[in-house]
Design a binder for these strands. Structure first.
Length: 492
RNA sequence: GGUUCCUUGGCCGAGUGGUUAGGCAACGGUCUGCAAAACCGUCUACGGCGGUUCGAAUCCGCCAGGAACCUCCA
């Protein structure tokens, strides 16, 4: 097994060699979607980033348990608000349907979008609503350890008490004084000892639809609890990697650390990984900012900011062409560049299949392979890995044009490298035109016309040949003349 | 205001002390009846000002601009 993977740990702010808790096995937990709205481009980033990690760990021979939750209970929209209304129930009232109906609708969309992006499904995809009991047990354990208190049917985490023994803020680089001076004093927070205390259990107000019975009150679990409870259940008290967006570092992941430390006396997570944001016009793409483009809109081109539809693989390639810890700015120009680049990569893979082997080799396949994997080993540096792949593209084309030679062993290795790296590890695939019922008819008609054109060309009737080409072009059919005759495709 | 971070060639985007990142675009060429497509080649940047160093995009300081978090957020 290869074990050279180095990952940037938010906790230490350094790159660290990944050494799993149990040799040969890796436990991975990633914060999943809150299913109260359509999945947008910004959401795609963490799931593609950690899909790459998942795939790379699998490729490296690890047995991986990958848990990615679905938040279907809904975080509090405003923790201190009198109504205590959560996102799911709010949306349900607006749409006049059951909360779990909203949940189901957006779960379906989310899963479909992930499949389109070729994101592998995690091994376990637990829902918060399905783990209310585990969350209540978790609250019990924190209460027993004395790090929480109950007020009027709600339970709050006692941050100040916790901070006397542990460092609250270690992940995000804060200390309690920073937090104290920067936490806003909100209305209706009188229950809490301190404004920065956070809810573990919240008593439901009468209009709050999603509610479960507990020994404290009819209510619902606090924002940060589900990840602690479910990761413990499926990965154990301590596990290897916890991932999510950078915007979750504080307070979400900070609170998770506090919860696990309070509950079990030790932290749960060994490596914290956080992806950066996708921006649009330099600003974070977020639902709350209203500057988002949903994945369905991207795939269909149905949005005023889109020049055209962008395919799922273009989106995936676009995201992989930036390092996961850098921001990546959305623009049609950037997507166009990714689309063209991906086409070139895929075309080279076609060429590779037809490449002739020679008696000797003038290219260094082994070196190329090492560079590709070294890049991923270096904190999943996919853009550098892709840059090396493009060196491979040049290598393939040079061989095809006879400027370089490759022997059969090298050819096998090169084919294997591209297959494994592009398809299995990067998770890209070749997108084909969607077939329709009329495909056969269309093919017959176009082939017929292009054969007429070849006849015209044979008798050097350029006027007719050009007319056929231009007419088909204007109808959106792209013609490529080849040595064998012709190829054509519908313009994207 | 506090914490953290960023500023790279026309665009996107790697790179943490000394050698060409890469993609897209552009330009030149090969191919072609002409195109298109494809392929090959060319294009040497690092916000500003100082400092450290034999040598800085890379380290330090100041300035300018921008972002994330501090409230739900991927």
């Amino acid at each position: 097994m290869k074990n050279q993977l180095v990952i940037y740990n938010t906790l230490s702010r350094k790159k660290e060699l990944f050494i799993p808790l149990v040799e040969g096995k890796a436990g991975l937990y990633v914060c999943g979607p809150t299913v109260y709205s359509d999945t947008h481009l910004g959401h795609a980033r963490p799931f593609i980033t950690f899909d790459l990690l998942f795939r790379y760990l699998l490729y490296s021979g690890y047995q991986v348990r990958y848990v990615r939750n679905i938040t279907d209970v809904g975080h509090l929209e405003n923790e201190a608000e009198e109504s205590g209304e959560d996102k799911i129930s709010k949306k349900a009232r607006v749409e006049q349907i059951e909360p779990m109906e909203v949940v189901q609708k957006y779960v379906n969309t989310f899963r479909r979008n992930m499949t389109q992006l070729n994101v592998l499904p995690p091994g376990i995809e637990p829902t918060a609503s399905g783990h209310i009991i585990e969350q209540q047990q978790y609250i019990d354990s924190i209460l027993q350890k004395g790090f929480a208190y109950e007020v009027n049917g709600s339970v709050y985490f006692d941050v100040e008490k916790y901070n006397k023994l542990h460092h609250y803020g270690k992940l995000s680089g804060r200390n309690l004084e920073d937090v104290r001076s920067n936490t806003r004093k909100l209305e209706g927070q009188d229950e809490k000892k301190n404004p920065f205390d956070f809810a573990l259990w919240k008593k439901a107000s009468p209009e709050h639809i999603m509610r479960w019975p507990s020994k404290w009150s009819e209510g619902f679990p606090g924002w940060h609890l589900e990840c602690s409870a479910m990761s413990k259940k499926y990965l154990g008290e301590v596990f290897d990697i916890h991932g999510g967006g950078m915007d979750l570092v504080f307070p979400h992941h900070e609170c998770e650390i506090a919860q696990s430390t309070a509950s079990q006396g030790k932290e749960a997570v060994r490596y914290w990984m956080h992806n950066n944001m996708i921006t649009i016009n330099g600003q974070k793409m977020a639902r709350s900012l209203g500057n988002f483009i949903t994945l369905d809109q991207l795939f269909s081109g149905n949005h005023e900011m889109l020049d055209k539809a962008w395919s799922p693989m273009t989106i995936r390639f676009f995201i992989l062409q930036a390092h996961y810890r850098s921001t990546i700015d959305f623009s049609n120009e950037a997507l166009q560049a990714s689309e063209k680049g991906l086409e070139r990569l895929m075309a080279a893979i076609d060429t590779l299949e037809k490449l002739p082997a020679s008696g000797n080799s003038t290219v260094d396949v082994k070196g190329l392979k090492e560079k590709c994997f070294a890049a991923l080993d270096d904190d999943l540096n996919s853009p550098v890995a892709i840059a090396h792949l493009f060196d491979g593209v040049r290598m393939i084309n040079s061989i095809a044009h006879g400027q370089e030679q490759i022997d059969s062993a090298g050819l096998d290795e090169l084919k294997s490298l591209f297959k494994v790296f592009v398809f299995d590890v990067l998770g890209l695939f070749r997108e084909t035109q969607e077939s329709t019922e009329n495909d056969g008819l269309l093919k017959g008609v176009v082939d017929f016309l292009l054969n007429l054109r070849i006849e015209a060309k044979t008798r050097k009737d350029w006027a007719t040949a050009d007319k056929i080409r231009n007419e088909l072009n204007s109808l959106g059919i792209e013609i490529k003349d080849t040595k064998e005759g012709f190829e054509w495709s519908l313009k994207g």
